[in-house]
Structures are given as structure tokens and as C-alpha cells.
Amino acid sequence: MNFPSRLVEDAVNEFAKLPGVGRKTALRFVLHLLRKDPAEVEKFGSTFIRLRQELKHCHTCHNISESEICDICSNPRRDPATVCIVEDVRDVMAIENTNQYTGVYHVLGGIISPMDGIGPGDLSIDHLVQRASSGTIREMIMALSTTMEGDTTNFYIYKRLKEFNISVSTIARGIAIGDELEYADEVTLGRSIVNRVPYEKTIAAK
């Protein structure tokens, strides 16, 4: 693609760095911005600059935060003895949206996958073990994806936490609510049968 101006080309290249954006889409964005008010575009740009400069990571749970300690960790109504271990910030948002969880979080920042060059050292696992050693935590819930890499990470964390007197649990795996059995895949259905739950508990959950 040939551009009439060096400035346009630079702007296109920057947009094209975003995930899911190609050069054609990037050009559309740039031309769109050129049609806008300079003040509006300035606001657009400064929003991202502020985002990057002012946003921090919580010192306790590595969630994104505007202060040293995030809103969840500093909330007195949350139970600091229950920690939910998640892969990234999106998972925190997903679990928060359920309104079912009152504990705090620990964001790993990824999962172990040597093929992608991610080892335990690249994640906040050492800090997690440090939190566990403080003795104030009763339960840790591992809420990672149900992929092989997720299993690997679960297993590794479990091994690191074994020495502490903490109950380590993992989120339930099975048939999704509203699903019909005949459409469930065999592995999921098989596990749901093996790990069945007492019916009384399911009444209480409603």
C-alpha cells in the first residue's frame, strides 16, 4: 500500500499493531479520525496515554487498579481468607459479573506453556506462594481454563501449595446450565457422571 503522507503511514502502522486489525481496517480508522475535530482526536489519544501511565497493578492480587491496592482487595466486605486464582483480568471481570463470589483474587498473568515461552517464573506464582505462607488464607480456588495448559498450571500450583494448611479446590467441570445432554460432548458428560453432586446441594444453590 502506498500512502500520500508519511504521517498517515505511521498512524496506519500503529493501528495495525492492534490484535485483529489489518492494514485496510487501520486505514479506515485513520481516515475516520482525520474527518473528526482536532479536539476530539486529542481526547482520543490522551485517553490511551493516561490509561498507560496512570493504571497500576494491585500489589496484592495483580489485578489492574488505579491505586496500590485494588478496590476488591481493599473492600472490607470481601473475605480475604478465600483466594480465587485466575489467568488474567478478563477472568476477574467474568467472575465478578456472576455476583456469586465474595472472596479476593490472584491474577497469574498467564498460564504455563513452554511452547509459547511462558514458564512459572513469568507468572506471579512465587507471590501466590508468599501469600499462602502468611497463614491468613483458608481456601484457594483454581479457576483456570480447562485446557491442557490450564491443567498443567493447576497441577504445578497444587504442588507448590501442598505444604501449607490450605484447602485447594478447582472450579466444577461439567454440563453447562441449559444444555441438553444429547448435545454434550462425551468427555464432559463422562466427567459429569463421575463427579456427580448430591442433589440436596443443588437445591441450596438456587
Binding site: 504455563i112 491443567d151 504445578y156
Partner: peptide, 12 residues
């Protein structure tokens, strides 16, 4: 070398 990580993969 990190024996702990390798152990996880060995078990799997």
C-alpha cells in the same frame, strides 16, 4: 533447570 516444572509435565 527447574525440577518442579518438569515434574508436572512428567506426571502428565
Amino acid at each position: 533447570f527447574d525440577a518442579a516444572v518438569l515434574e508436572v509435565f512428567d506426571a502428565q
